[in-house]
Every structure is written in C-alpha cells, then in structure tokens.
C-alpha cells in the first residue's frame, strides 16, 4: 500500500502528506489559495497521519498563545523611566 499510495495520489492530483506538511503554517493560518486549501482539507479529512500531526501542530500553537503572561519585574516601567531621565530622555 505504501508503494502504491504515491502513484494513486499523483493520478488523483492529491497532495502528499509531505506537501501538506510543507505548507502547514500557511494552511493553519488560512493563507493558501482557496483551491489549494480545499485540496489539503480533503487530504487531511481522510488521512489519519496528517489529522493527528495537524492536531499536535495546532495544539503547539495554542499552548504558545496561552503562554504570554509572565511576571514582570517590580517597577519595570518606573526603573526604565528613571534610567532614561538620568540620560536626559524623559522629563
């Protein structure tokens, strides 16, 4: 099946998993042309490998989005304004 699949895909003008992976960043951000995106969506819909990989890829992005808050040092802004004031930048 593994040997036949690439030939079948070519005959059906279907993208390979590797091709989908190569443009995954554009795919998840919806930056692809509509027809290309549609071809990829159809591939992912029936490919368990791509589905699982896409799920992890999107999960990674979601975890990063959730990571923004961090504790800022106390008086970060005030220290910076003081630093700049000493150098004649701010009043």
């Amino acid at each position: 099946m593994r040997l036949v699949a690439p030939l079948m895909r070519k005959m059906m003008d279907e993208p390979s998993c590797q091709e989908v992976n190569q443009f995954l960043a554009d795919y998840v951000e919806d930056n692809l042309d509509a027809d290309v995106s549609d071809r990829y969506r159809k591939h992912v819909a029936h490919c368990d490998c791509c589905k699982a990989y896409l799920d992890q890829y999107q999960g990674t992005i979601d975890l990063l989005h959730d990571c923004r808050n961090c504790d800022l040092p106390d008086d970060l802004v005030e220290h910076t304004l003081e630093f700049l004031k000493e150098r004649g930048v701010t009043a």
């Binding site: 593994r2 390979s16 992976n21 490998c49 589905k51 990989y53 990571c67």
Partner: peptide, 30 residues
C-alpha cells in the same frame, strides 16, 4: 518529521485534550 514516498515515517497521535487540561505545569513545560 521524516517522510518516505511522501508519507510520514512515524505516525503522530492526537493529544488528549483532558490530559492537556490536567497538565498543571503546562506553561512551565512550554
């Protein structure tokens, strides 16, 4: 990831959303 004949060599497994939600050290891991 590695590919052979255009296909993934190693198959990924979807992350379990419950396991993700339960991971208390999520941010630290990231």
């Amino acid at each position: 990831p590695d590919f052979s004949g255009g296909m993934y060599v190693d198959q990924a497994e979807s992350w379990n959303p419950h396991r993700l939600a339960e991971l208390s050290q999520r941010r630290e891991l990231v």
